[in-house]
């Protein structure tokens, strides 16, 4: 990681003071790099609208990809304790933290109750309803201390940092997480489309007698 990016990282605005993100898939990054990124993007967009400007627009996009890469890796490599204020931002926008959270989510049996966000024994985590608050720190509190309607406490089983990683993953199930921080594929073996109906056709009757009877009745 370059020193330019590290400098960027240290001056990241805490989420409380950061300007509210704009609509649009690419406008969710925060910090100085992101602001440069957005300015460049607007320039590129305006160039792309005209035929003659297309080439220039594509050229203008190139340095943007470099800037985007700069804002992407925000892992604290020195292991320094983070300020509580910018914690949420550091975990929620960080690919490494989110994927750690995804692994913990399975290891700590979260998936057993909440499935992959749809719920089961526990409530869903991918909708807009949050019984105990939707902020990252609410989630961390819930994970570590439990809640009275059946959420067990995980304090002593995972570290506080791991609880933040879990919260970052859980948040990514419903929030609009930065695209570059999200994993491209889910690891759940069953979480794919079932075979089409024609692979399951010919409902073979369950006994030979019934096979004959069914054919006679013309229900097959």
């Amino acid at each position: 990681m370059s020193s330019r990016c590290r400098a960027d990282l240290r001056t990241t605005v805490p989420p409380e003071e950061a300007p509210k993100p704009q609509a649009g898939a690419l406008s969710r990054t925060t910090g100085r790099g992101a602001r440069w990124f957005e300015t460049g993007l607007r320039l590129a967009q305006s160039l792309l609208t005209t035929n003659s400007g297309k080439k220039a627009g594509i050229l203008a996009l190139f340095p943007l990809t470099l800037l985007a890469a700069c804002g992407r890796e925000t892992r604290d490599v020195q292991g320094r304790m983070m300020q509580s204020g910018d914690r949420a931002d550091k975990f929620a926008g960080n690919a490494w933290r989110i994927s750690n959270g995804a692994r913990l989510y399975v290891w700590m049996n979260c998936a057993g109750c909440h499935s992959h966000g749809g719920g089961g024994m526990g409530p869903p985590l991918r909708d807009a309803k949050w019984r105990y608050g939707s902020s990252m720190s609410d989630m961390v509190f819930t994970i570590l201390n439990g809640r009275p309607n059946g959420m067990p406490p995980f304090r002593g089983k995972i570290t506080e940092e791991q609880a933040w990683e879990l919260a970052a993953y859980v948040r990514s199930l419903s929030a609009r997480t930065r695209e570059d921080a999200l994993s491209g594929r889910a690891d759940e073996p069953a979480n794919v489309e079932p075979p089409p109906l024609d692979e399951r056709k010919h409902p073979r009757a369950v006994t030979p007698d019934q096979d004959v009877a069914q054919k006679k009745a013309g229900t097959q």
Partner: peptide, 21 residues
């Protein structure tokens, strides 16, 4: 019937041990 009584989310096919799907 957990999808109704538990207000479960059908967007995740593994919900309620896969029954919600």
């Amino acid at each position: 019937g957990g999808i109704v009584s538990g207000a479960l989310d059908p967007g995740d096919p593994t919900t309620a041990l896969g029954f919600v799907n």
